[in-house]
Design a protein around this nucleic acid. Sequence first.
RNA 1: UGGGGGUUGGUCUAGUGGCAGGACGCCGGGUUCUGGCCCCGGUAGCAAAGGUUCAAAUCCUUUACCCCCAGCCA
Length: 567
Amino acid sequence: MSMTKAKETTVSNFIRTIIDEDLAKGKHETIVTRFPPEPNGYLHIGHAKSICLNFGLALDYGGHCNLRFDDTNPLKEEEEYVASIKEDVSWLGYDWDGHLNYASDYFQDLYTYALRLIEDGKAYVCSLSQEEIREYRGTLKVPGRESPYRKRSVRENLELFEQMRCGAFPEGSYVLRARIDMAHPNLNMRDPVIYRILKAYHHRTGDTWCIYPTYDYAHGLSDALEGVTHSLCSLEFEDHRPLYDWFLDQLPVPSRPRQYEFARLNLGYTVLSKRKLIQLVQKGCVRGWDDPRMPTICGLRRRGFSAASIRNFCELIGVGKSYSLVDMSMLEHAAREDLNKTASRVMGVLDPLKVVLINYPEDQEEELEAVNNPEDLAMGVRRVPFSREIYIEQDDFREDPPRKYFRLAPGREVRLRYGYYITCVDVIKDEQTGEILEVHCTFDPETRGGDSPDGRKVKGTLHWVSARHCIRAEVRLYDRLFVRPDPTADEKEGSDFMEHLNPDSLRTIESCPVEPSIREMGPGTRCQLERKGYFCVDPDTTPGRLVLNRTVPLRDSWAKIEQKMKG
RNA sequence: UGGGGGUUGGUCUAGUGGCAGGACGCCGGGUUCUGGCCCCGGUAGCAAAGGUUCAAAUCCUUUACCCCCAGCCA
């Protein structure tokens, strides 16, 4: 059913337009896409955009999407990341359905293709050092110069390349380069390196190879080998497309993929680059990759975002070619939209104030029925214990209520959700400090369950927890990680994004009273604390310690009213 | 006068010669046993100038501004 809804709300984008045209022309019978992560870090919400795009397109058009690890650099890549990436992709709800590949699967084919390029005089072994190659490349405005090794014979190239492969040379001594055009205005076309010597252990091929293909060489050819039809990548690869096409034009590849570029995601008040995220982890700014403040998939998951909410978010933001900075309110909206329908309601008090019901018998207690989710009655009901002393939210009582405040105040009657109507009759204060210690109320036995038989209305409904029965929870409230919408904006002026970290991104509240039914919820369970927000049971939870993460607060129109009144 | 891209309300995004639409946000109202959800209404935009046309966000010209590229990273 969510599928049909998604279909109805799917908005077009330039990539869909291209696919529609290709299909209409009969260029392809179906489409093949791919998600090509490099296994050198954890996936983040920006990757989710790409995953949803690639897998989503395949699903919609009845094609398939390959999960292909781009593992051409053994210096940076590790098996650990492969596992986490697979986990995150599946968690997001996508199935590569057997199409799990690695660029390293094609090392032999790629090598054979390289031999072909050499034989055709389109590649040569170059002995220039890394620094020399840079010098010879020229600059943005100055054409490059041809390498003195550019004219080596095919035979010599073949021999040298074979020796490179055999491990006869040290790292950096030789590279294989495509012979294109050193004066090309696009620097990527100035005889790019396509193989380098790296005497490193590869997580999949071990020590089989000591020469490894570069991204530019491997990527398009891998696409072609897999029959990818639409190869989607981010904008910074636009400059690489001529090179992508060049290899495909030179070689007898089995299919002809096309590369299209879209704008990567930028989210406000956070950073979305592996390099920066790893810094946050390594410098201890957060507790790890899965810290709930992190924009990583595992961080968002731990924070309580559902896979559906992330998919909806990706649908919401669309796909384009212009730079954009998406507001966090979009992500929050996507989370609330899904969690409203799926998260069961429970009551918990973050900032407790004791209320004593003076006409409720001291030793009496009872269980009141509460619905688990008013948006989905199929989720059933539960019983919530009630007794003479309860906790309500400090903010739900004002001794001197402002205009438009319709919660508890001296002489006021309010409803306890699924409970009774209560009326405030007394306020007990510390004589020294004037601090409110507890509030005394009477309850109306006729209003059990929360309805008044005489039809009397009440303006406010408060959540509450029985003091005698409550269990305690550690609650973690999160705020934006940075204080600037774009923490990297002033990097060019020499400023570091770390300077803009929000010192208050985590606020922990100890021993919040929550209703006992929460005990049944295991780590990862999402719920709504009524009137407060959506929360998720953190994996730090043990039998003796309950930890809740606030995913996102509920919208709070009273807070806005109050804010406005304050001016 | 190196090359490649981009510019539609505060934000994201449709529209590719025919009434600039949707979403988020914000504002107002209705409803309500969550000041939530839901419903209704409102706010606000084609970077600029010129041209073609009955008609231009869309086609042409010029201008401005922004982003990316000089790894043996991806």
